[in-house]
């Protein structure tokens, strides 16, 4: 399984943008041009429908990212962009994991799931889809525990973050 999402060089940018066609391409372009791979990306409407929130997680050296951050901030469609440290924000993501589980192992899997406060959202005689939420490390740990049963499919939403307290995200 990928460990990129817990790499120490991982940066998370929160970008507040106009909710218009083409804005995603403009932001993605800035990353692509400097050869930065976006590890995860979440775009969703905000409380004010005119604007969207992008949460971009990318891996790379701080100096280049500083440049990318400035280039993104400069885009006309970007209202503001912020890079948050882990301490300042609440971080969550959700994963759906389809695990190959025969009847004999079902209890075991459910125990693991209980530990991670996950839920089963689909059951078939051969498999189960489990849902886990939490920070990236927790999801990685849960995926790690389920790997030995055989993960058929894994879908993750990517990280969303919100600044704690009165700070604006």
């Amino acid at each position: 399984m990928s460990t990129l999402l817990t790499s120490p060089n991982l940066h998370t940018l929160s970008v507040y943008v106009n909710n218009k066609p083409g804005v995603l391409v403009r932001v993605a372009h800035v990353f692509a041009r400097r050869g930065f791979n976006i590890e995860s990306l979440v775009v969703s409407p905000t409380a004010d429908g005119r604007y969207s929130r992008m949460t971009v997680t990318a891996d790379g050296d701080g100096e280049t990212l500083e440049q990318i951050f400035k280039q993104v901030s400069k885009l006309v469609d970007v209202l503001h962009a912020t890079e948050h440290t882990h301490q300042e924000v609440v971080e969550k993501e959700l994963a759906l994991i389809k695990v190959r589980v025969a009847e004999a192992q079902r209890t075991e899997v459910l125990q693991i799931l209980a530990h991670f406060k996950g839920a089963t959202v689909d059951f078939t005689p051969q498999s189960v889809i489990v849902q886990v939420t939490g920070n990236t490390e927790k999801i990685e740990a849960c995926v790690g525990m389920l790997e030995k049963y055989g993960i058929i499919e894994l879908v993750r939403t990517g990280k969303v973050i919100m600044a704690r307290g009165e700070t604006e995200t």
């Binding site: 066609p21 083409g22 391409v25 403009r26 372009h29 041009r33 006309v76 469609d77």
Partner: peptide
């Protein structure tokens, strides 16, 4: 052209 020109404009509209 909106897409093609994106890297070489300050801003663009369709």
């Amino acid at each position: 052209i909106f897409g093609i020109s994106m890297p070489c404009v300050k801003h663009s509209y369709l």
